[in-house]
Design a binder for these strands. Structure first.
Lengths: 136, 136
DNA sequence: GAGGAAGTTTACGTTAACGTAAAGCAAAAA
DNA sequence: TTTTTGCTTTACGTTAACGTAAACTTCCTC
């Protein structure tokens, strides 16, 4: 499974992930991406492409760009740091895990509500159909 | 299990859910809550209290207030409506369900990444400890 | 009856995450 | 060579979801 490409232009990334170039530059501005440059123009590595995926995933989970950036640096800087620093990271990791667990619960609840709504909806449709039946 | 209360003041709700009264009034402004009034002051029913729970749950899932409001009207107006309307509702329900499924996948991925980060973090800590061991 | 405490409306301020327009460079195509 | 295409920076505009302050009732308490 050879890697498709080694580098990407900004518009390649934009169209692949269906976001604007404005957004991509904004993510860089916020410290989420660090493309290299050929002259003035940005060159994105495969690593940057992976980051784009992660950014969008984080957004779908309702994380702010700042939180996502923090998760990135958490990921990048894990191996180094003092013991204090490492313990802090463990803290943050557990914190994030707790958030995700809460989200799982929330999703389960909303799914139940959707089940309920769908059932009511289906019943109403059945009702309409049986009325039509009678009328025929 | 008798219901605790039949009605709530705005500050009761605010402190229970740990939000500001400003937010609660804002949710009303956006059509998410419909408290009755005694004179000028708002009276919140148990139903309103349930809605507060749902609002916060929706927010934790990254939904906008507009989306939450749409889900509410979806819930409220399901039994009525024409066949066209009902089919549209089914559409929306399936759409939301798809979003939740995507979120579940996203959560699973992020959890894996957290596992990974935690492992690396733990390894680094172990490394520090064994170094200390040697030094003693 | 003077002063809180809790509620209200009105309205301007703020932050995040971009949108959008203007003006310019640089390489490739016509 | 002109023109188009793609990229760049700069900068002001916009929306959502409130924060915050001002000025005002109403009720309770001292």
């Amino acid at each position: 499974m050879a890697p498709k490409q080694n580098s990407y232009s900004i518009s390649e990334l934009a169209s692949e992930f269906d976001v604007t170039t404005r957004s991509i530059r904004f993510y860089e501005d916020q410290g989420l991406l660090h493309p290299t440059r050929r002259g003035q123009t940005r060159i994105y590595s495969r690593q940057d492409r992976v980051r784009m995926k992660l950014i969008l995933r984080g957004k779908r989970l309702g994380f702010s760009l700042a939180e996502i950036r923090d998760l990135f640096s958490l990921w990048d800087e894990t191996p180094s740091g003092s013991q204090k620093q490492l313990n802090l990271l463990m803290e943050i990791i557990h914190q994030k895990r707790a958030e995700l667990d809460q989200q799982l619960k929330d999703i389960a609840m909303v799914q139940l509500e959707l089940d309920n709504a769908e059932r009511r909806c289906r019943d109403a449709l059945d009702e309409l159909r049986t009325q039509k039946q009678k009328a025929s």
